[in-house]
Nucleic acid binder design. Structure first.
Lengths: 332, 332
DNA sequence: CCGCGTCGTGACAACGTTGTCAGGGACATG
DNA sequence: CATGTCCCTGACAACGTTGTCACGACGCGG
């Protein structure tokens, strides 16, 4: 900047004025400075500018998701990115892999980096630690999972109702032996989906078979293994509800390996690319990811703009997408 | 920091020393400062610190990819993130959607933000503009597509050889009427894959049917449409080569809609999740995305650490993954 | 008891900006 | 011609941090 000022024969402050498009600079000075700027390829130092300006913004928001390479997280991030771009904001993204230590660490890091806001798909069970972090008044919006131990905006789907919808869909077709594969109970979405499964049985005054309900299924491969062992029972399930997209994939794989994909019904929670091209096409509970992303962005930027109303907790209803796998009738 | 110094009864500089773990501070002063830091919940201002330090790093790298929600870009980003995390670096990610204007704009933005390095999957045909940007000596590493008009490290797969491999696989099984669906010729990877397709025919001294070669296929939906029209020809293709994962999906959809998925052979470029669960499972050319990501990271951080050797251009060989769709014989 | 090196500490300037305020010139008014 | 007003411009301090250097206390050998 000093060089630009020297070249244009003006003071530092005048360069600053031109660069920031402030009023009160004569036309010819403005042009001289602009010429010097482009000749020297000058770039303002954002860090210094933020330092000086009072309450300036860094133009960066942080997004902590479950796993960047998972289609749900990736789509969410993409949707967030689009909204952020419109506001001249960039997105720092990181994966948590359900590790709450990493969450605490990364949140701390992002707050220290002075991000303007935080989008959080928490891995931890409680986020009490956030109270201290957010004293720096960095707004945070939760997505996919509601906050606990701290109050903040959130956008989630009604996981319990969605799981119940899926299960009822199978019950209505006459299935009585329905297996359920869900992730660790400590993950809020997983336990809610488990609860929804139970709700649907309760709604018909029927008891689920506890041996068919497997929790703590963490990966696609585990889902495959679990599904194989369920199918080897003397009295195997005639249908299966999968609590997460990667588990549906694992279950489908096990069914295919046994040639049972047209015999055992399956409804999965979360849609994913190509679910409609599987054989049979997969019936799923779908969340509108792009809508979730844009609502999250709206809430977040509203906070960044200073809105300090009480936190909002938005709950979206997921929908059942009927494609074939969930409509396979029970044998006999 | 001033408050911390006051509370601990020391000078600013001493607080700085403790925070940065510098030598030359007595044990009890160190403890007093540490106590004050945690009591006041003090966070060093990274921006100010970077401003003062000579040649300091922001601990952020930028990654510009094609589309964050595309599984290839997402996996690449994830792999990059893992490497970056080990180096205490965060990743700013953005999607280009093949728009070169956006690329120029975002690169400028990232350089202005003083990122430590840049990972670029370029949308533009030439990157001459980078020469000016990189005068600020921000290192850049190209991925998936080699640089043109500027010299920089790159990691790509041998697109031409991969496409030839796919095509030859079909030719070897007796197919003579092979369709090819590729993206815009202006995208380097697309034109190379197209060239590979031609190479394979040339290798057998056979001419491809130009009516079966469709370029500028941009989306899954377009691929579906194109595939349908090809199948309606009097002399339809008996096999198809798809130049990109999303095009394979579109082609599979068209084949499924016509019940031809077991009659027409298909080999796609780029693997994707669930390709093995389709009916029939998809034969593809696979790039090792995680390996690419980690090589890119290694090159980039090496540059950030000051290596100024001539740029390296790493070319990885893709592999053919045989799963079924590519082994369907021609009729008769 | 003196000189010297070592160790812990602090004062000060500087990083690249911008907010504040004051100065000087042009012009209009009385 | 004195005075007031407006417009443009620049000097200076400050944002939060760290590199440099200097200072005083201490211990040691002569």
């Amino acid at each position: 900047m000093r060089d630009v000022a020297a070249l244009a024969g003006v003071s530092l402050k005048t360069v600053s004025r031109v660069v920031n498009d402030e009023a009160g600079v004569s036309q010819d000075v403005r042009e001289r400075v602009a010429a010097a700027v482009s000749r020297l390829d000058y770039r303002p130092n954002l860090a210094a500018s933020n330092l000086r300006r009072t309450g300036a913004r860094t133009g960066v928001v942080g997004a902590l998701v479950q796993d960047l390479s998972n289609s749900f997280s990736a789509s969410l991030l993409r949707s967030l990115e689009d909204s952020a771009r419109l506001r001249g904001t960039a997105v720092l993204a990181a994966s948590l892999d359900e590790e709450s230590d990493r969450e605490v660490e990364l949140v701390h890091d992002l707050v220290t980096r002075r991000v303007d806001g935080l989008v959080l798909m928490p891995a931890s069970e409680r986020q009490d630690y956030l109270v201290a972090e957010l004293r720096t008044d960095t707004p945070a919006v939760f997505v996919d999972r509601e906050p606990r131990g701290v109050d903040a905006d959130s956008v989630v789907v009604d996981n319990r109702a969605g799981a119940a919808l899926a299960t009822e869909h199978l019950l209505a077709r006459g299935h009585r032996r329905i297996a359920a594969l869900v992730d660790m109970e400590s993950i809020r979405t997983a336990s809610l989906r488990h609860a929804g499964f139970t709700d649907a049985y309760a709604g018909r005054h029927l008891p689920p078979d506890p041996r068919l309900v497997v929790t703590s299924v963490r990966s696609t491969d585990e889902a495959t293994t679990v599904m194989h062992s369920l199918l080897e029972l003397d009295d195997p399930p005639t249908a299966v509800f999968c609590g997460r997209n990667i588990l549906s994939v694992g279950a489908v794989r096990a069914l295919s390996e046994r040639g049972l994909q047209h015999r055992v019904a399956l409804v999965g929670f979360d849609d994913f690319p190509l679910a409609d091209l599987l054989d049979p096409p997969l019936t799923v509970i779908r969340q509108d990811v792009r809508r979730i992303g844009s609502m999250v962005a709206d809430l977040l930027f509203d906070r960044i703009d200073g809105n300090s109303a009480p936190p909002q907790h938005i709950v979206l209803e997921p929908t059942l997408v009927v494609r074939g796998s969930g409509e396979i009738p029970p044998p006999g």
